[in-house]
Design a binder for these strands. Structure first.
Lengths: 122, 122
DNA sequence: TTATTATATGAATAGTTGTTCATATATAAG
DNA sequence: CTTATATATGAACAACTATTCATATAATAA
């Protein structure tokens, strides 16, 4: 049985052939969700500043708090978001918890994003 | 006059030397904002699906609407967000408006993000 | 033990964002 | 001209998110 017909859409202008071919190649809705979720986590000023700092050195929570000049609770909440997304990892050392980037994919993304932003400014 | 002292932070544990050196290298608050803004735009399921579709072909609004199986108004609103962020561009052709990716940085980011997501699944 | 310090977390709140609905604009066809 | 079609947009609303405050947990020091 062939796939055809866009029964859930009443538009008239659809370029059927292109649409069909794109439809076959497109990301599944699940993958799109996961990808969007990753970018969503990166899409916050506080979290970007945390990642930018961790890109330069492993740091404990109160170092980060000092660097960002903000509430310790706010920083911990955001670190949790980053940890849950497996973008940063942590290890305990005495009273402190030291955070670092989880892998190089993340720094790659941040570097690439920066480039894009720099491009746009031209 | 030297920079020293974290007067806006009352934490006691700060590793002063590391913090100072990171502070000197860190992204400015403005750049962090711009970068976060870029990722924020990429951090939505609908917009990711639009970009994924446009990565494969230039498409008019109602093609996208059909592909995503959603409200035309919602699609137009999201296209505006993507256009404002200069992630997609558009050209008019008759009654239609054709959208495409603005440059290769964007597809690079999406590809890199996908890789990261794939890594995490292992 | 108690006191102190570092971090984590639940609840409340204010601000933001995505979708829908209704409608406006623009182009083409009759 | 009028009608139909494609796209854009403002307003309203619901859902989500970041921060703050208060407090809990965990480790160390005394």
């Amino acid at each position: 049985m062939q796939e055809h017909g866009h029964d859930r859409c009443e538009e008239q202008c659809v370029h059927t052939d292109v649409v069909e071919s794109v439809r076959r190649e497109m990301l599944g809705s699940v993958s799109a969700d996961e990808l969007a979720q990753l970018f969503k986590v990166l899409g916050d000023n506080t979290r970007i500043r945390i990642l930018d700092a961790l890109y330069r050195s492993e740091l404990c929570v109160c170092d980060i708090t000092a660097l960002l000049g903000m509430n310790q609770s706010a920083v911990s909440h955001q670190l949790r978001v980053l940890r849950d997304a497996r973008i940063v990892k942590s290890r305990k050392q005495g009273k402190n918890v030291l955070y670092s980037l989880d892998d190089e994919h993340v720094s790659g993304l941040v570097r690439m994003g920066s480039e894009h932003v720099r491009e746009l400014k031209r």
